[in-house]
C-alpha cells in the first residue's frame, strides 16, 4: 500500500477573486490538445478534433484552444488556469467521449486540485451569528447563586429508583396507602 496520501497537501477552500459573488468567471484560460496524426493511441483525440472541437470552442469563447500535432507521441491535454496552475492529462487510447468528459472537467475546475485534500467542506467568514455555544448557555441562572457543596446539585442527574422507593410507591398506590382508598372500603 502506498503512503502517498500521508504526504498529501491539505488546506481549506480557496476561491479565486470571490468567484460567484457577482458573476461566475470560467477559470480555464488555455487548453492545448497534443496528438499524433498517425498513431492509433491518438485516435479518440483525432475523432474529437474532427467532430467536437469547433462546438467546444464556440460554446466557450473565453477559452483559448491550441492544437499541436506531434509525430509518434501520446495524446495529451494540457490546461492552464487563470491562477497560473498547469495540468496535464494523459489521453493515451482515450475514446472521444472520455476526451469530452475530461475537457468538461478542466473547464469547470478553478485550478489544478489533484493531490490537494480539503480539510473542511465549508468556508464561512461568519462562523456564528447567535454567538457560539458555551457550557453556560441555556443553563438555569439560579445555579450561579448555588453554594457548594450543594446536596441537590451534587447528585447524579438520573438516579434509578431504589427498591425502598418503589415499595413506598406501591404502598401509596394501593388502597391501604391512600386516604381515598380507605374511605372507599
Amino acid at each position: 500500500m502506498s503512503n502517498s496520501h500521508l504526504f498529501l497537501k491539505s488546506g481549506f477552500i480557496r476561491t479565486p477573486s470571490q468567484n460567484g459573488v457577482g458573476r461566475y468567471v470560467c477559470q480555464l484560460q488555455r487548453v492545448v490538445l497534443k496528438f499524433c496524426k498517425n498513431n492509433g493511441s491518438s485516435r479518440g483525440m483525432r475523432d474529437f478534433i474532427e467532430s467536437g472541437l469547433v462546438d467546444f470552442a464556440k460554446n466557450n469563447p473565453g477559452i483559448v484552444v491550441y492544437l499541436k500535432p506531434r509525430r509518434h507521441r501520446t495524446a495529451v491535454i494540457s490546461a492552464e488556469y487563470l491562477n497560473g496552475d498547469k495540468q496535464y492529462i494523459n489521453c493515451r487510447n482515450f475514446a472521444k467521449e472520455e476526451i469530452i468528459k475530461w475537457l468538461n472537467l478542466l473547464k469547470t475546475q478553478s485550478g489544478n486540485t489533484t493531490g490537494f485534500r480539503y480539510r473542511k467542506l465549508l468556508h464561512t467568514d461568519h462562523p456564528s451569528i447567535q454567538g457560539p455555544w458555551t457550557p453556560y448557555t441555556f443553563k438555569d441562572p439560579a445555579e450561579n447563586l448555588a453554594k457548594f457543596p450543594d446536596q441537590d446539585l451534587s447528585r447524579p442527574k438520573h438516579l434509578p429508583k431504589t427498591a425502598t422507593e418503589e415499595l413506598l410507591e406501591l404502598f401509596q398506590r394501593s388502597s391501604l396507602g391512600s386516604p381515598e382508598g380507605k374511605r372507599a372500603e
Binding site: M1, S2, H5, T15, L105, T108, Q109, S110, T113, R117
Partner: peptide, 15 residues
C-alpha cells in the same frame, strides 16, 4: 446560490 466549481476530489485509497 451559484455553482462555482465542479471537480473531483484527490485520489482516495480503498484498501
Amino acid at each position: 446560490a451559484t455553482v462555482i466549481e465542479k471537480n473531483v476530489s484527490h485520489t482516495k485509497t480503498h484498501f
